[in-house]
Design a protein around this nucleic acid. Structure first.
Lengths: 236, 236
DNA sequence: GTCGGTCGGCTACCATACAAGTACGTCAGC
DNA sequence: GCTGACGTACTTGTATGGTAGCCGACCGAC
């Protein structure tokens, strides 16, 4: 639950996630919350500063580039093998996802599209017989998706992305490895190339250094507890 | 510490690792031990069965294949970029590691060689500028190394492996991408192709199913506690 | 001799209490 | 008005107690 909240940007990069607050909110003790946070920290989605606090990690140029490299290497390597193993059934299943994506596009259902996109790439990878490597890709993808959600003209991009998906499937079916590979490659780089522009728009969600020592604890207390406190936003 | 014990086969696949025992042995409470085990479980090195126990995971054919795919894809992708970026300094540093490996070979220092091998591949990856992707490779490598340690004629293989290392460095320096790639590929597959033979020799360390429901709790209690109990092993 | 119920001991799971340490608002001194 | 020390409230880290659940041995019945 926490993970999807972070990847979905519901929890903004830089915001504090207190073990106590989460435990109270979820009605459990700190222990299971803490264990979850440790896993998220291992994944690079939160930064834990001992005795200071835990914060949703800001998007780091380094991490995004690293995630892009990992994802690209694994998906392309899988595609290389997929061309040799692909069956008519595989293609049919992929095409079902494509039509579902088009439906999500028509309804401007971004959340639905993100989910279908994930499923599409997972299924594509499964064709190669290396479905068990998907979790690694998914983990890398999580870093990328945080940036991707900021890409404003997402409604425009959706149809473009779906077109690329279809192209990959077509070329995969035709057995044209080189062109399929090139198509997938440019598809994967589409959003990555926009990261710079995205950063210009939302600089506060990015991080300059690799791991800033001062995470800037939010002075204004969170008001999401059991009862809201009307914030004295007015000056005095 | 636990991780290296598992990867080094000091803790055999299938053996139980109790939170209580470890905590007592290390002189800490169960909490930090438990948190470590959760990370190891996420990495696939231990299997946690609620209310039953935690066990060093047996080597699974699936996991080894998956790890091989991940490692090969990432290292080869890195090499592809490394050829374009490699400097004389990089080559020099890699060659230093090669001579150190030869020294370890002369002294039949397997542990030292394993460490140098890890460093060599990490450094090779760093040449491409994707050092931050190394942890992912290292994690996959952990699964492979457990099998690799069982490869009996390791003392013979060492010189062979070092030769392959040197070949990769030479071709990298020469800028011959295709041959360097092929050389690295065959190097990475050397041990993987022996997994079947290794399994024949040590079937008890492998697992048939994906995740056996009955981990076969060891009936003979561990005798490593504060005082040994003479086991009534004799037949009545 | 074989089968089925029972009981003890173990496990990981969760909740809770305490400890160590940091940040920030407050207030005295200059 | 500004600076610096202090105290408080927060943070994560660690230790510990209690709980649900599973395994395996024991023991009585057939």
């Amino acid at each position: 639950m926490l993970r999807s909240r972070i990847v979905g940007l519901e929890l903004e990069p830089g915001s504090a996630v207190s073990e106590n607050d989460l435990a109270a909110e979820l009605g459990v003790s700190r222990t299971p919350v803490r264990e979850s946070l440790i896993l998220l920290a291992d994944e690079g989605l939160v930064d834990i500063y001992p005795q200071m606090g835990t914060f949703v990690s800001r998007i780091r140029e380094r991490d995004v580039a690293s995630a892009q490299f990992i994802r690209e290497a694994l998906e392309r390597a899988a595609l290389r093998e997929a061309v040799e193993k692909v069956t008519a059934r595989d293609v049919a299943e992929l095409r079902v996802l494509l039509t579902a994506q088009e439906e999500a596009d028509r309804q401007s259902d971004m959340e639905g599209f993100f989910q279908l996109d994930e499923e599409f790439h997972a299924r594509l990878m499964a064709v190669s017989g290396h479905a068990s490597a998907w979790p690694v890709v998914s983990q890398a993808k999580a870093q990328l998706d945080r940036a991707r959600r900021l890409s404003l003209p997402m409604t425009q991009q959706m149809s473009l992305l779906i077109g690329q998906h279809r192209e990959v499937v077509d070329l995969l079916e035709a057995g044209d490895l080189d062109r399929a590979d090139e198509s997938l490659r440019s598809h994967l780089r589409l959003v990555f190339s926009d990261v710079e522009k995205i950063r210009a728009k939302h600089p506060e969600l990015f991080s300059d250094e690799d791991a800033p020592l001062r995470p800037r604890r939010d002075s204004a207390r969170r008001a999401g507890g059991t009862h809201r406190v009307i914030p004295g936003g007015s000056a005095h």
